[in-house]
Design a protein around this nucleic acid. Structure first.
Lengths: 170, 170
DNA sequence: AGTTTAAGTCAGCCTTGTTGACATTCCAAG
DNA sequence: CTTGGAATGTCAACAAGGCTGACTTAAACT
């Protein structure tokens, strides 16, 4: 299977000849890179009986303070029961505060406590450092391509969520 | 934020001005993209009581037929107990064959059966299709940048494993 | 002969996903 | 105003798939 071309290769005029082999390299790159990407925070969290799920919750609460549980659910893509377990431990450990909504009392609005913000900083510092080094090594052109491909790889729903978060950035 | 720099303008020297906000976008992009990336195979596997772990094992056995358990362990980065559980079900379900080594009889060499290859094809077709569309949308330049950044993001060990696999490709 | 290595197994733990059942709150139709 | 349904969040129980630790078997090395 030396020069197998990828079926629908003739992408209009943009001349993208993609062999299965090239695509597979991309798949494996995603796998290995994602592991590297989560390795440092994972290690920090493991020491406090937390996991990746806690990290994700903390990240997005920090990103959008006052967000509701339902909001968070949609972004994280898990069941509310699953998220709830994580939130419960974060709240009882004093990293997250849950305030009953004033206009709609069914809703809970989530905030990081001082302690929560400090944990968030520790985790995201580690991850940003890794990201910064990768960017530096790959160069500016590569970075823009990186983001383009990732964005194209998302599910449409998540792409919308990502866009909203991105544009709301400080 | 007023003077946020985009980075990709100054491609010449290493003038990479990266705000925390830009880095966080990269972090979130990784999160959302990885989910999109695994979504389709996950759905296929869920119907047969398999998970992502089975997919990974099948992928790398297909990639390097005759690989040993120890090899697979190193690539997947899990414990042998964890891998063994997965491998056991794959073997008893007839997707994987385990042959005692001829030169070193302690080793077991792993191969996909006909059925295993067909499942692998189904899974990787789905994933390649997604990858191909993303590549097409992002364009050829973006693809090379994408791979560069991912490679830079890997742990050194994994980077070596990735390089070996990559260079052994058809 | 004794040690190391490859592989497999059993037991038990943790995180994190799932469903199902349930309580509370809101809102709109009767 | 009441009542029924929808939305929101919580509790409980289960499964997948990570992990550690202890142990066995067989083969290879020294």
């Amino acid at each position: 299977m030396s020069d197998r071309r990828s079926g629908q290769g003739y992408s209009g005029e943009s001349l993208l000849f993609l062999t299965d082999e090239q695509l597979r390299q991309g798949i494996e790159a995603m796998f290995f890179a994602y592991r590297g990407f989560t390795a440092v925070p994972d290690r920090i969290l493991a020491d406090m009986a937390y996991g990746r799920a806690h990290h994700r919750a903390i990240h997005f609460i920090n990103r959008a303070p006052g967000t509701t549980v339902n909001n968070l659910l949609a972004i994280l893509g898990v069941t509310k029961q699953s998220l709830n377990r994580v939130l419960r431990t974060l709240i009882s450990d004093g990293f997250v505060e849950s305030r009953v909504g004033t206009v709609d009392k069914r809703e809970r609005h989530l905030f990081l406590t001082e302690e929560g913000r400090s944990l968030e900083a520790k985790l995201s510092d580690a991850q940003r450092t890794r990201m910064r080094l990768a960017y530096k090594e790959a160069g500016p052109e590569a970075v823009s391509g990186f983001k383009k491909v990732l964005e194209a790889m998302m599910d449409p729903d998540m792409r919308r969520a990502y866009g909203k978060l991105r544009d709301s950035g400080s």
